[in-house]
């Protein structure tokens, strides 16, 4: 399977707010630890224990690509959308065009940066790896992107549809045919 077929999926329900993904991202890309060097950011609502990880979702119809006046936003071979720092002028158009507010400023250069899904790293994106135990971030094939959520929804419904007695297992039981 091609790597372009993979996406990072987010389940905020599972995020415990440890910021491990931010540490993993900043260390891998910059060799230093710091929230502001990370391309993924946890949005905290700590008083109600709710945490939403926000990162570039590499939209199919990416508004940042369209809006960038310098053509600096580009799609790379694993499907991620990144900023070409050489072309970028730091105008922040991608930040305000992005529906999620996912692009962030590189504190050293003043140009934007977004998730490159750790292109070239064998073990996949560092953030998802750091989240192995909680599973709020996962790196999965595209065809499975909605699987977890759908399963969760189905889990609630399953009692409605599970076999109650013989008649519900065989919908034809007790019926006369050919009459």
């Amino acid at each position: 399977m091609e790597k372009t077929d993979y996406v990072i999926i987010i389940d905020p329900n599972k995020c415990a707010g440890c910021h491990g993904c931010e540490m993993a991202c900043s260390v891998r890309h910059f060799g230093k630890n710091g929230t502001f060097y990370s391309r993924i950011r946890i949005q905290e609502f700590r008083d109600i224990c709710t945490f939403i990880p926000v990162t570039c979702q590499a939209c199919e119809e990416a508004p940042c690509i369209k809006v960038c006046p310098m053509g600096a936003r580009k799609r790379i071979e694993n499907g991620a959308v990144i900023t070409n720092e050489e072309a970028c002028i730091g105008c922040q158009a991608c930040i305000y065009a992005c529906p999620l507010g996912a692009p962030v400023m590189n504190p050293d250069t003043g140009k934007t940066m977004t998730c490159d899904q750790c292109l070239g790293c064998e073990d996949g994106p560092a953030c998802a790896r750091a989240c192995t135990m909680q599973g709020a971030l996962k790196y999965v094939p595209k065809y499975q992107a909605s699987k977890d959520k759908a399963r969760k929804f189905a889990w609630v419904l399953k009692d409605e549809f599970k076999p109650q007695d013989e008649s519900s297992v065989n919908q034809y039981a007790g019926k006369e045919f050919g009459a």
């Binding site: 599972k14 415990a16 707010g17 440890c18 491990g20 224990c49 750091a130 192995t132 135990m133």
Partner: peptide, 28 residues
């Protein structure tokens, strides 16, 4: 209700509690 982690801890042994029923229902 949910796990709550300290900084950079993959385990997240912290909890957040909601009491759903009884005398203290609604307490979190």
């Amino acid at each position: 209700f949910r796990n709550k982690a300290c900084w950079s801890c993959p385990v997240a042994c912290g909890r957040y509690t909601y009491i759903k029923e009884g005398k203290y229902a609604g307490f979190h």
